[in-house]
Design a protein around this nucleic acid. Sequence first.
DNA 1: ATCCAGGATCTCC
DNA 2: GGAGATCATGGA
Length: 284
Amino acid sequence: MKLQKEKNKIVITNDLDFNIIQTLECGQVFSFIKPSDNSYVVISTNKIANITYDDSTTIIESNDIDYFYNYFDLNTDYNKIKKEIISINPNVSKYLGFGDGIRILKQDIYQTIISFIVSANNNIKRIKGILFRLSSEYGSKISEGIYAFPTLEQLSKVTSEDYARLGAGYRSDYLVKTINSLKTTEYDINFLKSLSTIKLREKLLSLSGVGPKVADCILLFGFGRTDVFPVDTWIRKTYYLFEQKKLSDKDISNYFVNIYGTYSGYAQQYLFNYMINHSKEESF
DNA sequence: ATCCAGGATCTCC
DNA sequence: GGAGATCATGGA
C-alpha cells in the first residue's frame, strides 16, 4: 500500500490492501455519510474525515489526520495478514479475494458499544438510520447536516422513550442501562484496555444489551482485539455451508478461533463480507 | 402475510 | 447451563 501523509490529508493509492468502499460498506461501521458517488464523510466521536476517491486514489482529509491514520489502521500490513490466513487454510482464499481492501477500523469504544447494541437483531440500513437520528438530535453540530456522535454526557440525558422514538425499539431500555453503567469507574476505558480479552469480554457481557456477538464486535472494532470471531446469522450460514451441520454460536466461534487464533477477527470480516454480498446468487 | 436483520434476555427445566 | 419464547421496526 502506497500512502503519503501530509498535514491535513493522507493520499493513498488504491490496491489490494486499501479500498475505502469495502472498508466502510462491510458492516463494521455505521456512522458515515455518502454525499456523492465519489465521496464519504466519516464521523467518529466529534471528529470528521472528508474522503474523496476514484478508481486509483483515495484522499482522506481531516483536521485531526493522526486520529484517522490510526482509525483506518494504516500501520498494519494487510497483505501479510491475508497470507497468514491463507497459509492456515488455503480453501478460504476465494473469500479473502472478494474482500480485498477491507481494513478493520479502530473505532471509538463508546460509539462502538452503542452502535452494536443497536445492531442486535437489526439490519444495517435501519442501524445506520437510528444512529444517524441519534447523532442529529443529541450530538453537537459540526457543520451543516453533520453532527458528532453524542458524548456519554449527552447520551445520559436521552430517555428510553427518546430511543424508542428514534426507532431503537426494544433495545431502548438496554441503551439507558448501559449508558448508566459506562459512567461508573468500573467501566473506565483505560482500565478496560488493560484487561485480557477474556476478562474484557466478561466485563462487556455484563452490560445490558451486550451478548456474546455484540461483545465480540466491540472487542474487535473498538478494542482492536483480533482474537475473537463474532457469530451472527451470516456466519451461522457460513459455518453450515462449510461443515453441513448445525452448532451453537459459541461452538462456531470457538471452532474458528481455534483455527485462526489472533487472525480470527480479520478472517471473520472477510467471510462476513463475502456472505452478505453473495447470499442472493447462492441460495443458502 | 410471513420472514428476516451483524441477537439479547427472560423463563423454565 | 442449555433450549424456547419474546422482544420493535421496516423492508422484502
